[in-house]
């Protein structure tokens, strides 16, 4: 029994806005299926009483003081945009 069908891989690709042809989707479906299969093996382990690991990093999140610091200008930020009018990012109409 397959854990993931090509159809589902196609859906995930479209959610991520990735274009892929049939052959690629099938290839990924196979790879993802292997990964899920391995997860199934891991799942056999009894983890009762073990907290879920959200991050392998052992220290807690550092905090920042609430102070304003401006390091970049409007031009810097807009400089990377494919299209702008020096005020706004311009994109294809959303609605």
């Amino acid at each position: 029994m397959k854990k993931i069908e090509t159809q589902e891989v196609a859906k995930i690709a479209s959610l991520a806005r990735l274009e892929a042809d049939r052959a690629t989707l099938e290839r990924f479906a196979g790879q993802l299926d292997n990964i899920l299969e391995y997860m199934e093996t891991l799942h056999e382990l009894d983890t009762t009483g073990v907290d879920p690991l959200y991050s392998p990093v052992q220290h807690p999140a550092p905090f920042r003081e609430d102070s304003v610091h401006q390091a970049y200008t409007q031009q810097d930020v807009l400089g990377n945009a494919p299209e702008s009018d020096e005020l706004y990012f311009i994109v294809p109409k959303i609605i």
């Binding site: 930020v77 706004y88 990012f89 311009i90 994109v91 294809p92 109409k93 959303i94 609605i95």
Partner: peptide, 15 residues
């Protein structure tokens, strides 16, 4: 926030 242009087929984005 985005502003949608009435005349052009564009939206303007302010981050």
């Amino acid at each position: 926030k985005s502003i949608h242009s009435r005349h052009e087929n564009l939206s303007y984005v302010d981050l």
